[in-house]
Design a protein around this nucleic acid. Sequence first.
DNA 1: TTGTTTAAAATTGTATACAATTATTTAAAA
DNA 2: TTTTAAATAATTGTATACAATTTTAAACAA
Lengths: 204, 204
Amino acid sequence: MKKKDTHAYTYAYEYLRDQILNGKFEPNMKLTEEKLAEVMGISRTPVRSAIAKLEQEGLIKNKRIFSPTSTDIRHIFQVRILLEGFSSRYCARYISEEGLNSLRECVEIGHTGTQEEVMQANHQFHQIIVKETHNPLMIDTIDKMQSIIYLMRKTVVYHKRPNLIDEHAEILNAIASHDEDLAENLMVEHLKKDLEFSLNLLKV
Amino acid sequence: MKKKDTHAYTYAYEYLRDQILNGKFEPNMKLTEEKLAEVMGISRTPVRSAIAKLEQEGLIKNKRIFSPTSTDIRHIFQVRILLEGFSSRYCARYISEEGLNSLRECVEIGHTGTQEEVMQANHQFHQIIVKETHNPLMIDTIDKMQSIIYLMRKTVVYHKRPNLIDEHAEILNAIASHDEDLAENLMVEHLKKDLEFSLNLLKV
DNA sequence: TTGTTTAAAATTGTATACAATTATTTAAAA
DNA sequence: TTTTAAATAATTGTATACAATTTTAAACAA
C-alpha cells in the first residue's frame, strides 16, 4: 500500500490523520509506534515523525488519540473566531478582485454543488479570507487547526445547518462593500452558529 | 557537556534554541544534522527532533536559520496583538485575585529589579495574562511565538524603552477595575509601541 | 561566456539494533 | 485481602548503517 512517489513519513502522516478524522481509532486510544509501523509496512522512524507532527496539530496528545470535549471545542473556536474575524475585517479593506471572485464562486457552489463539493467550497471560502491577509503566521496558525475544524465542518454540512450558505453570501457582501465592522461581525456570528450547531448535535 | 538527567533531544533543542536566540549562527545559515550532532556529541536522531520542533516554532525554516525581516516581525505582532488583546479583555472580566497579585509583583520588579529580572518580569506579565484565559490553544499558540518574541523583548528592555513599565501598570489598573475595552486597547497600544521601538532600533 | 549533462559528494530519509525508561505483572510481606 | 517490592515485559529514545535524494562540481557543447 506504500506509495513509491512520496516519503514514508508523509504516507504515515496522511494515513494516521485520515484514520483519526474518520473515527477509525478508539477515542483516547494509545498509539504505539511499532504496531502502527507494522500495519503500514514501514519502520518506526517515519511513524515517529508523523506522530510528532500530529501532536503539534492537536490530533494526538501524549501519544493518545485526542477526542475533544465540548470545552476543548469552545476553546478552539475562541481562537478561530479571533483570527478569522480579523481576517474578514482585513479583507473588507484590502481584498483583490480575484479574491472576491473566488469567494463568489464558493457561494455559488454552496448553492448548486454536491455535498462533497459543498464541503470543499465551505473550506475554500474560509481559507481564501485568511489567505488574503498575506500573513504567513496567521495562515499557518489557522492551518494547524484545520484537522479539528474539519470534524466540525463535516457535522455542519452533513446535517445541513440552516442558512449556512446565506451567511457566507452576507459576509461576501459586507466584504465587497468594504464594510469592515459588518464583515467582522458577520463572520464572528457565523462561526458562533457553527459552533453551537455542532455542539448540540455532538451532545445527542 | 551532555547532561545525564535529561534526554538528548531536550539538550539539542535547548542548545540550538539558545545559539539561535543569542545570534551565534549566521543568519540564513544552513543547519546540517551531522555537523550539529558532532558538535553536541550526540547522534543525528535527537538533533532531527530538535530541528523539527524549532521549525514548528518558526526559528528554523527549511533547515536554515530564520532571520525575520521587519515585515515578518509585523506579521508576528499582528497575531500576537490579536491574541494578547483578547486575553487582556478576558482578564478584565474574569481574572482571579492571585492573578492580579502576580501581575502587581511583575510591575513591582519592573521598577526595582536588575535588567535580567526585568526581562523575566516582563515575560511573566504577558504570560500571566494569556494563562488567565485558561484556553490551552491560546496559551500554546502564544507560547510557540515566544522564541521570536524574546528577540524583541531583549531589544526593548536592553535599550530601556520609555514608559515600558508604566504601560504595564496602566494595563494592570484597567484589568483590576474590570474595564474591558480599556484593558484591550492599552495592551494593543503597548504592543504596537514595542513593535515600532524594536523595528526602529533594528533598522539602525 | 552560458547553458546543459553527467559524475561525485553531501545530506537527508529509513531501517534496525540496542539502551533507557515506563508500565505491567508477579510474588512476598503486612 | 491489601500493599509494597522485585521481576518482567512493553515501549520509547538513541546510535548507526545504508538507501534515496539533493546539491555541488566538472566536463562538454552551443
